[in-house]
Amino acid sequence: MNYWLLKSEPRDYSIKDLERDRAAIWDGVRNYQARNFLRQMRSGDRAFFYHSNTKPPGIVGLAKVIRENVIDPTQFDPNDKHYDPKATPENPRWQTVELEFIKTFPRFISLTELKENFLADELLVVKRGNRLSVMPVAETVAKKILELVDVS
């Protein structure tokens, strides 16, 4: 099992939305490096749910990958803000995963707290200027994050 961090703006899709939906496709990622990370995700992997572009940003919960290598349907919809005119059903450019809600953490872990506990080479989200919406998290770091929220 691998660990990941997925960023979402709560006004677009929040941990509460995932809890309500129980499962959802993580669609709309349009960064090649983030897409490549999505392609590496496997069923059973865990993902920290991070609320971005909010005050303060931080980790709010945990999800599980339940389906891998899902074709992102938003790339084909000309009315969707994530439409990609170069993508076709025969040659899709964007793959993603389906996530299942596991839990909202009993407490929020702010970006400030993450910076106090991790170096940029340990946890990419604390690196200044990092804008990736999908990033890997080392198992040792994941375990420390879970200890911070007192979740096993």
Rank of each mutant, 00 (worst) to 15 (best):
M1W: 04
M1H: 09
N2F: 04
W4S: 08
L6V: 14
K7H: 15
K7R: 15
K7N: 13
K7Y: 11
E9T: 13
E9H: 08
E9V: 07
D12H: 13
I15E: 08
D21H: 04
D21W: 01
R22K: 11
R22M: 04
R22N: 06
A23K: 11
A24I: 04
I25G: 02
W26F: 07
W26C: 03
V29M: 11
V29L: 10
N31R: 14
N31S: 15
Y32Q: 13
Q33C: 03
L38F: 02
R39V: 03
Q40K: 15
R42L: 13
R42G: 10
R42E: 14
S43E: 12
G44C: 15
D45N: 15
A47I: 12
A47R: 05
F48K: 09
F48W: 13
F48H: 07
F48C: 04
S52H: 02
T54Q: 14
K55L: 09
P56Y: 13
G58L: 04
K64P: 04
V65D: 02
V65R: 00
R67A: 08
R67N: 08
E68P: 01
I71H: 00
D72M: 05
T74K: 11
Q75W: 06
Q75V: 01
F76K: 00
N79L: 14
N79A: 12
K81S: 07
H82K: 08
Y83W: 14
D84I: 10
K86T: 12
K86H: 14
K86E: 15
A87W: 01
T88E: 06
T88W: 08
T88D: 00
P92A: 11
W94I: 05
W94K: 06
Q95R: 12
Q95V: 11
T96C: 03
E98L: 07
E100D: 08
I102R: 09
K103R: 12
K103S: 10
R107Q: 13
R107P: 02
F108P: 01
S110E: 05
S110C: 06
E113D: 14
E113C: 00
E113S: 09
K115T: 00
E116I: 08
N117M: 05
F118C: 02
L119W: 00
L119D: 12
A120H: 05
D121W: 05
D121Q: 12
D121I: 02
D121R: 11
V125C: 09
V125Y: 03
K127T: 11
R128N: 09
R128S: 09
R128Y: 09
N130M: 07
N130G: 03
N130C: 15
R131F: 12
R131W: 07
R131D: 09
R131S: 14
L132P: 06
L132T: 02
M135N: 13
